[in-house]
Write a protein that binds this DNA or RNA. Structure first.
Lengths: 343, 343
DNA sequence: CTGAAAGCGCTAACAT
DNA sequence: ATGTTAGCGCTTTCAG
């Protein structure tokens, strides 16, 4: 039904409900907030009147008065990565259940933009913040100073005493690399992300650990740290393939970069997995549909979101609770891109 | 730098700046908002003091007083679709440039959730709203009634007098279908989205128009309208392939459904494009990487976002401007999945 | 050009 | 159990 409705019709305020119900604004407030100190019958009547009038509390006024809003801010670093979108779903699920709304802020891995959003969510009085920091040195003190609960997600901030939830990047990367070794690849390169991100460095370390466990030295020329984007993976893979002694497998530390690496391989007509094996990190809708289907380290993305939300809820309820650091396991999902080399 | 900072340190208010600068709060307000009625030298001094104190205006108080906030709400229907994430980038680009922040709300194509977010953004006093409505009958009167500017994006609302920006779905679908016919496919099926979405129905109509232009009747059994999800495309394609007389090509009206259709084809061991041709609608990071690389109708996603933002900005500046309906062209991007049938 | 004062809509402290 | 009052932090008349 498209109701035309007169534009500018005054929004109904609490005062209007109060007048109509023949009570004071305070009583309306109490009734609508289910305070126990109001007569049940009266409360019912007030709520009925409010509903009839289509009253919706002004959250801005409420936030100003309560000095705390009713939205959670989820600050993510790349909205184009399905990893974060899945995480967002998880967060939302819990938030809505708790009566909060979630707004997303996209920093694009950009420190300045992250800084800006931090100021915004503070100024907008978010009830809490879940953030995938754009750097392991992101300064969240502005939030902490004003008692806004923060949970870091996916990545940790070095030295910060905040609740956090991450996956076991080290173990996942190590398992992926060992899998490649076990499949018969021997000259394995690593394409990881920015060194300012804990995820990137931990995955690189897991890769190195697997090599060493197999008695190999880590060849620095075969380790690339670039951005976490498709283009970064494409360029890095290209450079590695153009080396005099190119690798025969890639461990690629992120889903977007893995797509880029696959493109570089395809453009060069290099058969995967026959000539070069590939394992990515983090699944994506397209990974199983690629040619060949991509082996990846799967992360519990949705769970990551719900866990972060759980930590935030807990912190909201008890500011002095002990800091909790959750680490979730990954799972290697073997597909075709790592079936082993063919002479 | 990780500053520890004493938790709970009082946030600095305008009054503090005023006291420190030896002026009234009103003057501080005027100075910080660049009102012309304040002595330039004084204004400079005030701004300096504000900066020194690390003063950040409380947006909640400002919104309450001004009766309008400084964030734009972007209400999208599926955060997991890269289409929307790219659009979001475009919106943000313009918004930040204009001094607004963007928050994303994800409705998941769910009418109830959309309803909720509409109430939330109203109550939070968003300065404006850009929305991809979950239905062609979405009721946005709650926003219009309170003079919150609205721009619809990607989809239109039937009968609504609001600024809107969409792509030419009809022409794009028609071109895609004609392309399949030209490549030699003859029994072309259409997998489209929910009939409550204008995008889905227009794409279906474009498909039908192309068939009729080629002298074909439209066989209703070959037209499926499902959801815009991977699973929907998978199921629909499977059903169509299991028909006694299966189609020899698919026009799939969305990127996620196209991925699902490709999966159904792969599972049945049906060669694409030799046995069955496929054209999708809307590009995605994975489309060119699939096996075979997917032919698609490309949409100017980023531009869609910036255009929507432009319309919103215009409306904010002039509430009585004439309603503008922008239609952007699509472009067929031919890859391998529609190379033509082989006997 | 600047200051004093009112008030946005709500909630919490205080009164009754 | 309910009403009255004050005030969250800002902007905007209205005076001067």
């Amino acid at each position: 039904m498209i109701e035309t409705g007169r534009a500018g019709s005054r929004r109904v305020r609490m005062r209007d409900v109060a007048t109509r119900a023949g009570v004071s604004a305070a009583t309306v407030s109490r009734a609508l907030n289910n305070r126990p100190t109001v007569d049940p019958q009266l409360a019912d009547r007030v709520r009925k009147v409010a509903a009839d009038l289509g009253y919706e509390p002004n959250r801005v006024a409420r936030s100003l008065r309560r000095q705390a809003g009713s939205v959670w801010a989820l600050i993510i670093s790349d909205i184009e990565n399905p990893f974060f979108t899945s995480v967002a779903r998880g967060v939302e699920e819990v938030a809505l259940h708790e009566g909060f709304s979630v707004v997303l802020c996209n920093t694009d891995e950009n420190i300045a933009r992250e800084r800006r959003y931090l100021d915004v969510v503070l100024a907008e009085q978010a009830a809490g913040v879940i953030i995938a920091p754009a750097s392991d040195r992101t300064d969240i003190s502005v939030l902490r100073d004003h008692d806004v609960p923060v949970v870091t997600l996916d990545r940790r901030i070095r030295g910060a005493q905040v609740d956090s939830v991450v996956v076991d990047n080290y173990a996942g990367a190590r398992q992926a690399t060992s899998h490649l070794l076990g499949a018969g690849y021997w000259r394995i390169a690593c394409i990881s992300g920015p060194s300012k991100l804990t995820t990137a460095t931990e995955r690189r370390k897991g890769y190195a650990a697997a090599l060493r466990a197999a008695g190999q030295e880590v060849d620095r020329r075969w380790v690339r740290q670039t951005d976490f984007r498709v283009e970064g993976g494409y360029v890095a893979a290209g450079e590695l393939l153009d080396l005099a002694e190119p690798p025969d497998a890639f461990f690629v530390a992120n889903n977007l970069m893995a797509a880029g690496a696959m493109r570089a391989l395809r453009e060069r007509g290099i058969d995967v997995p026959e000539k070069v094996g590939v394992v990515g990190f983090d699944d994506s809708p397209w990974a199983p549909l690629m040619a060949p289907a991509l082996t990846i380290v799967e992360q519990p993305t949705y769970l990551l979101g719900t866990e972060a939300a759980r930590l935030l809820r807990r912190r909201l309820a008890d500011r002095s609770a002990a800091v909790e650091a959750v680490t979730l396991p990954t799972e290697l999902r073997v597909r075709d891109s790592s079936r082993g080399p063919q002479p």
